[in-house]
Design a binder for these strands. Structure first.
Lengths: 104, 104
DNA sequence: TGCTTAGATCGGCAATCAACGATATAACGA
DNA sequence: TCGTTATATCGTTGATTGCCGATCTAAGCA
């Protein structure tokens, strides 16, 4: 299995080194726990509005949080109509786990 | 195996979200690669001076880096005479790996 | 073509972090 | 006791991050 290089790792750790962003990653494990939305969250991800509401931050802060997680490769985004849906990147998280276990 | 709670995780990720501190964790996997010292590095850890020299930072910065890693539980320290020796906390790092894989 | 809604980006301010030199403490040897 | 060496802590400055409101862009609908 491929692993993350040092620069990528630092970026990932910075992204996760924030309590709200870390919580968001957990929340996204259960997309069904968010309020209903036009598109099925289980399949295409959770829209920003719902993440913002649960995090209790402003719209701009929520958007920036998700951009940081995305740049770190921890989530993917899919835009459908006016909504941007976010989903965990489980493959990347598995890589992170194995990198931590083997390389750190 | 016991896992880390969210607050501990955030502290660990903050500690590792810095390129030099992340490198130090790798360096400590091979204590024998450091210059010789009075006490055997393989057994009791690497003294701060050697870590400072390899990192290329000031003495105070090196000391603070190691304090941050230690507060995060990633290294342990042992003082013998005038030297403080630092060692990886492999048990903690294993916990981190499994927490990332199972919980994040 | 306007409204309205979702989201991204910009600009700014406060808080935190990074890094250093200076100083303090602790151990040891002359 | 007095240097000397290793390390920790303090105080400061510049850089980065966190977070917001305001603004911009894109989509969808009247």
């Amino acid at each position: 299995m491929s692993e993350l290089n040092e620069d990528d790792l630092v970026q990932v750790f910075k992204a996760l080194g924030h309590p709200t962003r870390l919580s968001i990653m957990s929340w996204l494990k259960d997309p069904g726990s968010f309020p209903p939305q036009e598109q099925p969250a289980e399949e295409i991800g959770v829209c920003l509005k719902h993440i913002q509401a649960r995090a209790g931050v402003s719209q701009s802060t929520a958007s920036q949080f998700m951009a940081i997680l995305q740049r770190a490769g921890l989530v993917t985004s899919r835009r459908i109509g006016p909504w941007t849906h976010y989903q965990r990147n489980d493959e990347r998280i598995r890589q992170l786990g194995s990198t931590v276990a083997n390389t750190i």
